[in-house]
């Protein structure tokens, strides 16, 4: 069979306009997003771009061009600045030439536009804070609206909902983060020893675009003022060799041993547990009564190391 140019079809064909795909992530207020749709003819016609009227949720309309073809076309739309369901209306006018015409078609797209999302992180917390004394922490926030939150306020509440501190976000991102704007804030430790709970939240009322926020709840141990030095030496139970780089906790205070297996912690009076952690070792928790400076030695027993290659090594 010889191949020639297919003669142009004649007559009036329908056209169909249908959604092909839209951005899967939530569509946030005031942001641009992509939609793709098919404008096609059931007979498989391919025609020059035709006029398409887009009526936006706010009532404005604009005219664009879309190909009548067998592949989807993509458009960028802008979400309104108010959250909620919004509808875009697309209308394709009748078109045609040289005896082949395509009927009008239309489509509407309703999108649930959601507020921006902001959330908070709190770090650089002291291992423990002294009752009644001030301490510093770092707070940061990130938003799907990017730097729109620069200069906004973060408020810290205690467990009773009382504001105990506030700070203003700077305009530089914390190292290695994408856009975590941050600040330091000074808080005062409660008078009662124990574990104190706080929550840090971003104030969003003054932002132009609506935001939903996730607060960051955090805890800090509160103790009496340290009065004594406890020196802990950790050794290998079998060889007696010092164990460096071993984490030692006395109550809420912690540090790691040096090359000589020793660490000195400044701790409050009272009873506490000495807890030792080193990968591949096991050491029992050791209760102590702290009434004066003291030195203790803890033997850690090597346990067969959970080496991923142990199964295979000779």
């Amino acid at each position: 069979m010889s191949r020639g140019i297919t003669p142009r079809a004649q007559g009036v064909h329908p056209s169909t306009l249908a959604l092909f795909a839209r951005q899967e992530d939530p569509i946030r207020v005031g942001t641009q997003f992509d939609v793709a749709f098919d404008l096609s003819c059931p007979h498989g016609c391919e025609e020059e771009p035709v006029a398409l009227t887009l009526q936006e949720p706010g009532g404005a309309s604009r005219i664009m061009k879309a190909p009548l073809a067998n592949h989807p076309a993509q458009f960028e739309l802008t979400a309104p600045t108010e959250a909620g369901a919004h509808t875009w209306q697309f209308d394709v006018a009748p078109s045609g030439h040289d005896g082949l015409f395509h009927e009008a078609s239309s489509m509407s797209l309703t999108v649930d536009v959601v507020p921006h999302a902001a959330s908070v992180a709190v770090w650089a917390l002291p291992d423990a804070v002294i009752s009644g004394r001030p301490f510093n922490i770092k707070v940061g926030a990130t938003s799907t609206a990017g730097r729109a939150i620069a200069g906004q306020t973060i408020i810290i509440h205690d467990i009773d909902g009382e504001e105990v501190g506030r700070t203003t976000l700077g305009d530089t991102a914390w190292p290695d983060t994408v856009g975590l704007l941050w600040a330091e804030v000074e808080l005062r430790a409660p008078d009662q020893p124990g574990v104190a709970t706080f929550a840090a939240s971003l104030v969003v009322e003054r932002l132009k675009l609506p935001h939903e926020t996730t607060a960051c709840t955090f805890t800090v141990p509160v103790t009496a003022a340290p009065e004594h030095c406890v020196t802990v030496t950790v050794v290998d139970a079998t060889t007696g060799a010092p164990l460096p780089d071993t984490l030692v906790r006395i109550g809420a205070y912690r540090s790691t041993t040096g090359d000589n297996g020793m660490v000195t912690l400044h701790v409050p009076k009272g009873s506490a547990e000495v807890v030792v952690w080193k990968t591949g070792y096991d050491a029992p928790d050791c209760p102590i009564e702290i009434v004066a400076d003291k030195a203790i030695k803890i033997s850690a027993t090597a346990v067969p190391e959970d080496d991923p290659d142990a199964h295979w090594k000779g």
Binding site: F20, Q23, A36
Partner: peptide, 14 residues
């Protein structure tokens, strides 16, 4: 694929 996270539409129906 119908994903349009990127800017490219990935399907040619033909």
């Amino acid at each position: 694929s119908k994903s349009i996270q990127g800017k490219n539409i990935s399907v040619s129906r033909r």
